[in-house]
Design a protein around this nucleic acid. Structure first.
Length: 524
RNA sequence: GGCCCCAUCGUCUAGUUAGGUCCAGGACAUCGGAUUUUCAUUCCGGUAACAGGGGUUCAAAUCCCCUUGGGGUCACCA
């Protein structure tokens, strides 16, 4: 039978990193089996603006290159992919269940049910539904209905049964039905609940493998029972571990961002993110964007290959060696059997490491397209289409080399883009290397003179000339290079100094040197 | 609390189904060293783990039991 998997997010307005990992596993399983991947929208409880809430989710899929065979924009042979548009199916199934006696109308007031629940808990007794409404005769039920008495519809759990599944990752898991309350499958307004709609749709869409996070494991017996009651074939199950917060076993959550900021393991990612997002005018401290969301990595300038590689290795491995995998390799190598059982924490450091690896694989042209976008959004370049700008940026990228891990890292060499008087000076090092270093200022003046008159302003000659001064004066590289770099870029560290000088060019270097040196008090 | 799940270096994991080749392998992080004008990269090297206790066995990270710990879930949310 052809494999059909689905990922069914509810439109929340953002794509969660953990959900993305679940989606990836579903997608991978479908692709590796030449099956079908379905994107279904679980919007049974949503009143908000669909476009707005769904947009970011589809956007995340498109960005990462996970395509769907059936989805919001392309209904499958089994109907639309919005649950809100499949109501007739749920209604029909409900009628069937009611007629068969697998489900019943429960007129018990919610407060009363709640009371019983609490009472059972107090008495340390397992709570199961009272089923008082089952005592009603058909006439009584009609009367209640006619009187407008509200009721929910519950599945009548066969209490003498057991549910046993053979989960692809967890193995055999079983439940005793005598311990289960009758789950509500339709609200008093007749609308279906998640567990019910899911089962109806999974069956209608002929889903063969339900691959979802472990937190759904407790929903499984209910869904199995529902499938049985409906006479469906039960899909195969694979409950993958949820994605935990770095260094913990707790499910990673959007609400705990403030906590994560204090987490040393999250340090680097936040530093990277803050630096980039700050430049883009995005308030990273606000709730709107956080590392828990897929959009965060995109905004910071991660590339799909890096994110995908990090995601696939959370809770899954191919063997004891393979770390680097392209999407294509994942497709051929992925298997449910090698999904790990215990929760796995997202490792921000490893994310960055995978990202660096894949970024380094990109050609200068590919990096160029990305960096141009970031530079433009930060207002550091005026026109990304301008051939001269493009050529210049390409050179900067080449010079930056491995320092460019994410597109946003282009901001770490912003000395190539800001105005001469807008260079941010590392004041502390400036004092140490220039102001308080004996003879530094005088040396820099001599260097400035030398550079202005240098016949050929390129890395080689620049190197030779500067080395020449050092030799002449019996100085070490450390006496000049950091100081010079500071004057022209504001930083003590960076890419090759001579190539930096060359790229910046004679005029800029001279202006920056003049500007910096003129601000030094007590000198003329 | 009930039900269910999980437990190997700081982290992600290999090894557990078929016990021996594992005084436990890889990757990231970290620490040292080499290269380099600095940083980054690259290359070498180091530190570092089978939660605890009982069994079974000639032999257990691997099988069984118990304990402990962690987590998920218990809605007219998804």
């Amino acid at each position: 039978m052809a494999v059909r998997t689905r990922f069914a997010p509810s439109p929340t307005g953002y794509m969660h990193i953990g959900g993305m990992r679940t989606a990836l596993f579903n997608w991978l399983w479908a692709r590796r089996n030449r099956g079908t991947f379905i994107l279904r929208i679980d919007d049974t409880d949503q009143q908000r603006n669909m476009d707005e809430a769904l947009g970011p989710i589809l956007q995340a899929f498109r960005w990462l290159g996970l395509d769907w065979d059936e989805g919001p924009d392309r209904p499958g042979p089994n109907g639309p992919c919005f649950q809100s548009q499949r109501r007739h199916l749920y209604d029909a199934a409900l009628q069937r269940l009611l007629a068969d006696g697998h489900a019943y109308r429960d007129f018990e007031p919610a407060a009363e049910t709640q009371r019983q629940r609490e009472e059972a808990e107090q008495q340390k007794r397992v709570y199961v539904s009272s089923r008082q409404s089952l005592l009603l005769t058909a006439e009584q039920i009609q009367q209640q209905l006619a009187a407008g008495q509200p009721c929910v519809i519950r599945l009548k759990v066969p209490r003498e049964d057991r549910v046993v599944i053979d989960d692809h990752v967890r193995g055999r898991v079983e439940w005793d039905c005598s311990l289960m309350p009758d789950p509500v499958i339709a609200r008093s307004d007749g609308s279906p609940l998640y567990n019910f709609a899911t089962v109806v749709d999974d069956a209608a869409m002929e889903i063969t493998h339900v691959i979802r996070a472990e937190e759904h494991l407790s929903n499984t017996p209910i869904q199995v029972l529902l499938h049985r009651a409906l006479g469906n074939n039960t899909p195969e199950w694979a409950h993958i571990p949820y994605v935990a917060a770095p260094g913990s076993k707790e499910k990673i959550s959007k609400r705990k961002i403030a906590q994560y900021r204090k987490n040393p393991q999250f340090q680097k990612l936040f530093e990277l993110g803050d630096a980039v997002l700050g430049r883009l005018g995005v308030d990273a401290a606000a709730d709107a964007l956080s590392p828990v969301m897929v959009a965060y990595s995109q905004q910071v300038g991660f590339i799909p290959a890096g994110v995908l590689n990090a995601l696939v290795r959370i809770g899954w491995s191919y063997d004891d060696q393979t770390e680097i995998l392209s999407l294509e390799e994942m497709i051929t190598k992925f298997s449910l059997e090698r999904v790990i059982r215990s929760p796995a924490g997202l490792d921000p450091d490893k994310l960055i490491s995978f990202q660096s690896h894949w970024m380094h694989q990109l050609s200068v042209d590919e990096k160029l397209e990305g960096c141009l976008q970031w530079l433009q959004r930060a207002g550091l370049i005026a026109d990304a289409a301008d051939p001269e700008v493009r050529q210049y940026v390409a050179k900067v990228i080449d010079l930056a080399g491995d320092r460019l891990r994410v597109y946003g890292d282009i901001f770490s060499v912003d000395e190539f883009f800001v105005a001469d008087d807008a260079v941010q000076m590392d004041q502390k090092n400036f004092e140490k290397r220039v102001l308080n270093a004996t003879g530094a200022v005088e040396l820099l003046r001599q260097v400035q003179q030398l550079l202005v008159g240098l016949p050929e302003y390129s890395a080689g000659p620049l190197h030779d000339a500067l080395q020449g001064i050092l030799q002449q004066r019996g100085l070490k590289p450390g006496d000049l290079f950091p100081a010079l770099r500071l004057c022209i870029s504001g930083r003590v560290q960076g890419a090759d100094l001579f190539r930096t000088l060359e790229l910046l060019g004679r005029e800029k270097v001279d202006r920056r040197l003049s500007g910096t040196l003129s601000r030094i008090p007590g000198t003329t």
